[in-house]
Lab assay of single mutants.
Amino acid sequence: MPVRRGHVAPQNTFLDTIIRKFEGQSRKFIIANARVENCAVIYCNDGFCELCGYSRAEVMQRPCTCDFLHGPRTQRRAAAQIAQALLGAEERKVEIAFYRKDGSCFLCLVDVVPVKNEDGAVIMFILNFEVVMEKDMVGSPAHDTNHRGPPTSWLAPGRAKTFRLKLPALLALTARESSVRSGGAGGAGAPGAVVVDVDLTPAAPSSESLALDEVTAMDNHVAGLGPAEERRALVGPGSPPRSAPGQLPSPRAHSLNPDASGSSCSLARTRSRESCASVRRASSADDIEAMRAGVLPPPPRHASTGAMHPLRSGLLNSTSDSDLVRYRTISKIPQITLNFVDLKGDPFLASPTSDREIIAPKIKERTHNVTEKVTQVLSLGADVLPEYKLQAPRIHRWTILHYSPFKAVWDWLILLLVIYTAVFTPYSAAFLLKETEEGPPATECGYACQPLAVVDLIVDIMFIVDILINFRTTYVNANEEVVSHPGRIAVHYFKGWFLIDMVAAIPFDLLI
């Protein structure tokens, strides 16, 4: 008679799926529990143990900040960024110097990925580790590398530091407007667009060049630039800015003055950032001319202004700041037409079709709590990747769950009947059967004279019903998954307890 339990259901295979997918890609990662103190490590794979030199037993239950890997060259700011990422709910990448158990130093890129439950609360953290440099290539500990984003994938490793954006290309926007319009339909740009040429040739750093990471940081200074100062900065030398009595002219307006920039070969870094931020506020060169004239017309309804409409929906549905990093990277690809469009465009503009998908598509409701890094690593669709929660398995109709209350009560009843059979069957065979043979035949009273025979008949009927119930009862397979398919249940029961239950259900007393 089957006594099969499996009270692990309803099970959740999400954690096993993450481990299996990460292991298949030869990654070095740990999984931490966000619900406990210090976000203790609950799993670390073999790749991480080989990377740091510690065994799994030495890593388990330690804080996922990996303070046991810190050393003299470990930056405090990087460690603080990892700790801050564990307090938030967004994906974050941090470069930090770690030390192995043998004392060797290596520069590592740590990717902190939160995993949320159905309520939107962070319950786990996945920390992925990628070695960037070994100890002989690690720089000085005073050099802070965590304020910069990861290198873009479309640049060669040897040319990542030679990417320079020439400031004269930004200063000569109005001069290039006529050349853009003359391109017409034969050019790649839309009317009114501004073409910015980027020099990728390796050259020595000069005062006129600005690194790509500095251009990325310009967006942080746009908020500090007032509207009046932006307007004066875009007017140009024809209309000098008016300053109040006793007030000095704005240095932001002076930063885009061609006369002032041409007199000296070098520009201050602050002026460069502010000038680029001011130019980015204009949607095209037409807006710059309109600002000089004193009238700013409404933005025209053409394809170039609607190019950012799908980007707005993608940004609203993005799951991490990696989408913004990807957008900034692609927006700086050289030799393309940049349409400086305000994100607050007309909502009635139709979304044009684009061959290049900048932001990841909208994630469906079932995966809105899973970050983009987890979705990318697992390579699963929205119909396959579940949320991290207890999910009731989908069972067929008329199927009994093996952990249901009805099955528990039924098993206790069958257990009592088995005990009765084990006690009274030998007793009936030894004593009652002998008395029946010696006594007179009682054929007239039937079952009324033999109450134990009636009980034995009921017990046999219950055993037959138990066999039928076992054909529709779920079970737990070797992978700790609840199986509810009727065919698989029948095959599993035939290979197991079916023969024993059938022999126990045969009414031998009635056959004798």
Rank of each mutant, 00 (worst) to 15 (best):
residue 339 N to Q: 06
residue 260 A to S: 07
residue 75 Q to L: 07
residue 316 L to Q: 14
residue 19 I to D: 01
residue 169 A to F: 06
residue 230 E to D: 06
residue 343 L to M: 12
residue 149 G to H: 06
residue 213 D to R: 15
residue 303 A to K: 12
residue 166 K to T: 06
residue 2 P to S: 06
residue 45 N to H: 01
residue 175 A to N: 15
residue 197 D to C: 01
residue 7 H to Q: 10
residue 254 H to Q: 13
residue 101 K to C: 01
residue 374 V to H: 15
residue 313 S to I: 07
residue 11 Q to M: 15
residue 281 R to N: 07
residue 216 T to M: 15
residue 346 D to N: 04
residue 194 V to T: 06
residue 205 P to C: 06
residue 312 R to K: 14
residue 306 G to I: 12
residue 198 V to C: 11
residue 300 P to K: 07
residue 385 L to R: 14
residue 173 L to K: 15
residue 352 P to T: 03
residue 74 T to W: 01
residue 90 E to N: 08
residue 36 V to G: 07
residue 217 A to S: 08
residue 55 S to M: 04
residue 375 T to N: 04
residue 181 R to Q: 07
residue 330 I to L: 11
residue 202 P to C: 01
residue 323 D to P: 09
residue 124 M to V: 12
residue 54 Y to C: 01
residue 6 G to R: 01
residue 364 K to C: 04
residue 244 A to N: 14
residue 160 A to S: 10
residue 194 V to P: 01
residue 240 P to T: 14
residue 325 V to K: 12
residue 112 V to Q: 01
residue 260 A to I: 07
residue 268 A to C: 05
residue 180 V to M: 07
residue 92 R to C: 13
residue 142 A to N: 15
residue 265 C to T: 09
residue 210 L to I: 06
residue 284 S to L: 13
residue 379 S to E: 03
residue 247 Q to R: 06
residue 32 A to F: 01
residue 153 S to N: 08
residue 263 S to W: 15
residue 91 E to C: 13
residue 128 N to L: 11
residue 271 R to I: 15
residue 313 S to C: 14
residue 112 V to P: 01
residue 372 E to A: 10
residue 147 H to C: 05
residue 280 R to K: 07
residue 8 V to G: 14
residue 239 S to H: 06
residue 68 F to N: 01
residue 190 A to K: 08
residue 379 S to M: 14
residue 296 L to E: 14
residue 266 S to T: 15
residue 109 L to S: 15
residue 252 R to D: 15
residue 74 T to I: 01
residue 332 K to W: 01
residue 381 G to N: 07
residue 225 L to P: 05
residue 220 N to V: 06
residue 310 P to G: 09
residue 321 D to Y: 09
residue 13 T to R: 13
residue 267 L to V: 07
residue 368 H to F: 11
residue 356 R to Q: 07
residue 63 P to Q: 07
residue 2 P to C: 01
residue 147 H to P: 03
residue 295 V to R: 09
residue 335 Q to M: 11
residue 109 L to D: 11
residue 158 G to D: 05
residue 135 K to D: 08
residue 226 G to C: 13
residue 374 V to A: 06
residue 252 R to Y: 04
residue 306 G to C: 12
residue 182 S to T: 10
residue 82 I to M: 08
residue 97 A to K: 12
residue 7 H to D: 15
residue 159 R to E: 06
residue 74 T to G: 01
residue 168 P to V: 01
residue 55 S to T: 07
residue 149 G to T: 08
residue 302 H to V: 11
residue 19 I to S: 02
residue 174 T to R: 14
residue 325 V to Y: 08
residue 46 D to K: 05
residue 102 D to G: 05
residue 168 P to N: 05
residue 22 F to P: 02
residue 89 A to F: 14
residue 363 I to V: 11
residue 260 A to W: 12
residue 188 A to Y: 05
residue 108 C to I: 01
residue 28 K to D: 05
residue 54 Y to H: 01
residue 80 A to W: 10
residue 5 R to C: 07
residue 249 P to G: 05
residue 77 R to G: 10
residue 307 A to K: 06
residue 308 M to I: 12
residue 251 P to I: 05
residue 111 D to T: 14
residue 32 A to P: 01
residue 162 T to V: 07
residue 220 N to K: 12
residue 372 E to D: 04
residue 99 Y to R: 01
residue 339 N to H: 01
residue 337 T to V: 07
residue 30 I to R: 01
residue 49 C to G: 04
residue 201 T to Q: 09
residue 42 I to P: 01
residue 46 D to Q: 09
residue 181 R to P: 13
residue 13 T to H: 15
residue 334 P to K: 07
residue 51 L to R: 01
residue 230 E to Y: 15
residue 195 V to Y: 05
residue 303 A to G: 07
residue 44 C to N: 01
residue 137 M to K: 04
residue 322 S to Y: 08
residue 49 C to I: 14
residue 9 A to G: 15
residue 287 D to P: 14
residue 21 K to R: 07
residue 156 A to Q: 15
residue 201 T to W: 04
residue 210 L to P: 07
residue 344 K to N: 06
residue 64 C to R: 01
residue 268 A to E: 07
residue 173 L to W: 14
residue 123 I to Q: 10
residue 290 A to M: 15
residue 55 S to N: 06
residue 180 V to I: 14
residue 380 L to H: 01
residue 315 L to Y: 14
residue 37 E to Y: 05
residue 8 V to F: 10
residue 59 V to W: 01
residue 324 L to F: 14
